[in-house]
Design a protein around this nucleic acid. Structure first.
Length: 739
DNA sequence: CATCTCAAGCTTTTT
DNA sequence: GCTTGAGATG
């Protein structure tokens, strides 16, 4: 009672702290609500406020609210904030990712659609392996089609998307989906797409489960709505029906997950599907200075669709945005770190005020090196996740098999690491037996004498493993999760294996294995009710941002994707070069390039006080030194907004007026750079292409095989007839192009 | 039949 | 600069 009175008082204070737009959105009537929330406009605040308002004012029971967030971290923060507002940790709504929500649902009801209670979740690598196996069986070589690409296509198809059909293997993707799904089902496994899809199947088969959920959740709130896919939208709609208390918050300008199946049409369709719905737009930005917003607006204004909102801020006395182009990537990293150092020493800033945002994980290397050499604390978000480390996956494979004896991919991993005298041939025999008898992998191994064509020694090895595992299972019937994990670790032989075979890296690996046990302890403390399979689901669904802790004083390096939803006093957006941003692999269509533009916009709008943009003229990519052009998006920024080196205004990439007509036709200006590359894009700097025939006064005729060097010492490697390969500095060598 | 070793290949973003 | 693949060896 007292808590309620308190929370009512808190609510008033909370509402008073909002601007009129935010307040209107928070206190909207029930029913469908769409909130278009620009970058830094207090989106999280509104979402939290809405939940708070529903509970404190509309008397909605906290358990009747579900909040879908993009990451577990966002969910945790939202719950923490609500706890503070409500003053009661038990009265906080459920919050989590769609995937987490669905995993739980399937754990509970999956058996009604034939899914074992302890089903496994196949991660990217697992499902890629399944695809690779299917491709090998059909005699496709890696050179023809890469399994990861095929897996992505299959994923797009499964999550309701369509393939253009332009690629000759698009059709194959459609043919493989069925077999792929069958493989997973027979292993008692689901992939990330299934997690979302199977609940819909569940609802179809068991309408009463859906109706139970509909009664349980009166209100569904969705964050980052622009990055939901079709299936997620359908799920939310199904559960929110029939009252349709569906509250979605998003920003079309920040949609950066189209490649993963996110469908921006959800935002548009929401308005069409719920004509009676209310919509709000948050346009005041509380994060960035006007100088930063101007740059962001220039970048996004060059896109080709009408703006739903216009961002503004009261922070008008900010620093000018800086742009610098360096000649080498190492210089760029040095400059960036030097600037951080200056800000710390002269402005009293902290390392944790800085974020370096990059297009790809691998670009962090240079920055890391400099930070290490200067003993500056830093953290990398992303890259290889803890649970994706080899040794950790080795250990989880044992746990997965204990949880789900059908988990084929996990079995294969155990059989190989540590080596057990079981190889490809034996594995193929086991798999073959599974397919023909319908037995699970675990059952076949437990009955190894049935494998008549395997040698006695092999059969004995299989049986030994099988017995060891059942012994572990038996022995740990009463054990906690961490005790089980520790026992598995002891008996797996993994520690001995790494120490013997890889002594130089064993320390790290063994430390990680022990850290895994600690992680298990943490989980069981937080969730005493967790079963092994609950624990394994959680592991499968953690994102790398989830354990990012901004309170620690260290520089953050991360991808622009990972930075979504975060903010930093000072942002360094680096390596802003064509072929990286937009990425060469995302330059096949206008849609892809526009998504890259939005990614840049997201990166810019993470900055609160200062923004530094930088690029390098040269950069080693894929082990080759490349000449880099500044990102074409930089040309869309009014040069007067940038301090430092400026790009000529006339070179702006979007000189033409976008019209409905030319928007949908592909423009040659967009495609020219990335398409015809023979691996290099600095053609203007070195007047030779790889493969060109050149003549040298002393060495005679030769073929250009490589280009390298920094700007003042451009070099080409030329293979001369009879003389061999020579590295020539263009400055000195007199080369003549033949033909 | 398994495993070791070296060469050749590849390298976006991620629940 | 880091993982898959072929080939040799045990």
């Amino acid at each position: 009672m007292k808590a309620l009175r308190n929370s009512k008082r808190n609510l008033q204070a909370f509402l008073d702290g909002l601007n009129p737009q935010q307040r209107a959105a928070v206190t909207a009537d029930e029913g469908p609500v769409l909130v278009i929330a620009g970058a830094g406009s207090g989106k999280t605040r509104v979402l939290t406020g809405r939940a708070f308002y529903l509970i404190a004012e509309m008397k909605v029971h906290p358990a009747a609210i579900a909040v879908m967030t993009f990451t577990n971290k966002a969910a945790g923060e939202l719950q923490k904030r609500l706890e503070e507002l409500l003053g009661n940790r038990d009265s906080v709504p459920w919050a989590g990712t769609f995937h987490g929500f669905c995993a739980r649902l399937l754990r509970q009801y999956g058996d009604t659609i034939g899914l074992p209670r302890d089903y496994s979740i196949y991660d990217q690598a697992d499902s890629e392996k399944v695809v690779a196996e299917l491709l090998i069986e059909r005699k496709y070589s890696r050179d023809e089609i890469v399994p990861s690409t095929m897996r992505n296509w299959i994923s797009v198809l499964k999550s309701g998307g369509a393939l253009s059909g332009r690629h000759r293997f698009h059709k194959l993707a459609a043919e493989l989906v069925g077999d792929y799904d069958k493989r997973l089902r027979s292993a008692g496994a689901v992939d990330f797409d299934d997690l979302l899809l199977l609940p819909l199947e569940l609802f179809r088969v068991n309408p009463e489960i859906l109706s139970k959920l509909q009664h349980r959740y009166d209100h569904i709130l969705i964050d980052e709505f622009q990055d939901t896919n079709r299936i997620q939208y359908n799920l939310a709609r199904a559960i929110a029906a029939p009252q349709n208390n569906l509250y979605v918050v998003g920003d079309d300008d920040q949609s950066i997950y189209g490649w993963r199946g996110a469908d921006i049409r959800n935002l548009i369709d929401f308005q069409r599907d719920f004509k009676q719905g209310q919509s709000f737009s948050l346009e005041q930005n509380y994060r960035s200075t006007q100088q930063i917003l101007d740059v962001a607006n220039d970048v996004i204004a060059a896109k080709n669709h009408h703006n739903l909102k216009q961002l503004w801020t009261e922070k008008t006395n900010g620093e000018q945005v800086v742009f610098r182009q360096h000649s080498r990537a190492a210089d760029e990293a040095n400059e960036v770190v030097g600037e951080m150092d200056a800000l710390v020493n002269r402005q009293g800033m902290s390392w944790s005020d800085f974020a370096v945002l990059l297009r790809t994980n691998s670009l962090s290397r240079y920055f890391e090196e400099v930070l290490i050499s200067q003993s500056i604390p830093y953290t990398i978000v992303g890259g290889t996740k803890f649970y994706d480390r080899r040794e950790v996956k080795d250990l989880t494979a044992f746990l997965r098999v204990l949880s789900n004896p059908g988990d084929e991919q996990a079995w294969k991993r155990i059989l190989k690491t540590p080596p057990k005298g079981i190889g490809e041939v034996t594995i193929a025999r086991v798999v073959d037996r599974c397919r023909r008898t319908g037995m699970s992998f675990g059952e076949v191994i437990a009955d190894a004498e049935l494998l008549s064509d395997a040698s006695t020694a092999t059969r004995n090895r299989l049986e030994k493993l099988s017995n060891a595992l059942s012994h572990i299972a038996e022995h740990n019937k009463q054990s906690s999760l961490s005790e089980l994990a520790a026992d598995v670790l002891r008996k797996s032989g993994l520690i001995e294996y790494y120490e013997e075979k890889f002594p130089e890296e064993a320390d790290d690996r063994v430390a990680n294995l022990y850290q895994f046990i600690e992680a298990a302890k943490d989980r069981e403390a937080a969730h005493p009710e967790y079963s092994l399979s609950d624990f394994l689901s959680e592991i499968a669904l953690v994102s790398d941002i989830d354990d990012y802790n901004e309170a620690v004083n260290r520089v953050t390096l991360m991808t622009m994707h990972a930075a979504k939803g975060l903010e930093f006093p000072v942002v360094f957006a680096a390596a802003l070069e064509d072929n990286l941003l937009p990425h060469s692999r995302s330059s096949d269509s206008i849609e892809e390039i526009e998504e890259e533009r939005r990614l840049f916009y997201v990166a810019i709008t993470r900055a609160q006080d200062r923004l530094y943009l930088s690029a390098s003229e040269t950069r080693a990519l894929n082990g080759q030194l490349m000449f880099q052009e500044p990102s074409r998006f930089l040309r869309d920024i009014d040069p007067s907004r940038l301090k430092g080196w400026t790009l000529p205004r006339e070179a702006r990439s979007m000189m033409f007026e976008p019209t409905e007509e030319n928007y949908h036709t592909e423009r040659p200006s967009y495609r020219s750079k990335s398409k015809n590359n023979s691996g290099l894009n600095g053609a203007s700097l070195i007047p030779y292409k790889i493969g060109d025939i050149v003549e040298h006064p002393d060495f005679g005729m030769g073929v250009v095989t490589a280009k390298s060097g920094s700007l003042d010492s451009l070099k080409v490697r030329v293979a001369f007839e009879g003389v061999g390969s020579k590295l020539l500095a263009l400055k000195y060598a007199t080369l003549r192009k033949v033909e």
